[in-house]
Amino acid sequence: MRRPPDPVQVVKKRRDAALRALVAGVPYIDFLGIDFDRRGDELTGVMTFDDKLIGDPRLPALHGGATSAFLEVTAIIELSWSILWEEMESGRLDPATLDPQNLPRLPRTIDFTVDYLRSGLPRDAYARARITRSGRRYASVQAEAWQDNRTRPFAQAIGHFLMPGRDG
C-alpha cells in the first residue's frame, strides 16, 4: 500500500542528515575542507580555499594533488550518494541509523585519471561528478572542477570504481 508523502521539511532533514553522515565520516574530506551542496539529488562539492592546498606559493596555484583528491572525493561521494539515495527513498535504509562508524561501504577506486586544464587559483573550487555507468560490480564516473567560471573548468577526471558488495 502506498503511504502518503512525508512533509517537505521531514524529507529535507532526512536527506541532509544522510549526506552529512556520509561526508562527515571521512577524515580526509574534512582535512581538505570539502563540503557538499545539495539540490534534490544533485551534489556540488565545494573546496574552500586554504593555504595548505597550495602547491607552488610563487604563482600561487593549488597543488595538483589537492585538485586530484577533490575530484576523486567528489566522484566517490556522488557514487555513494546514488546508492544511499536509492536505499533511503525506497525505505530500505533509515538515515537515523547512519553515523561514521555505521555507513554503507564505500566504492573503491580502481583507477583515476586527471587532466589539468589550467592552474588552480588560490580561491574556492567547485566540482560535480556524473555517473556514466553504474553496474552491479563496476562504475564509471566523470568529474569536473571549476572556480570563477562554470564554463572554464580547471580540471576534469574520469575514474573507474569497484562497487561495494550489497550484502556488506
Binding site: 571521512v26 580526509y28 574530506i29 581538505l32 597543488h63 595538483g64 594533488g65 589537492a66 586530484s68 583528491a69 577533490f70 576523486e72 572525493v73 577506486t109 583515476f112 586527471v114
Partner: peptide
C-alpha cells in the same frame, strides 16, 4: 588512507 592522498 584516501586514494586522493596517494594521488597527491
Amino acid at each position: 588512507i584516501h586514494g586522493g592522498a596517494v594521488s597527491a
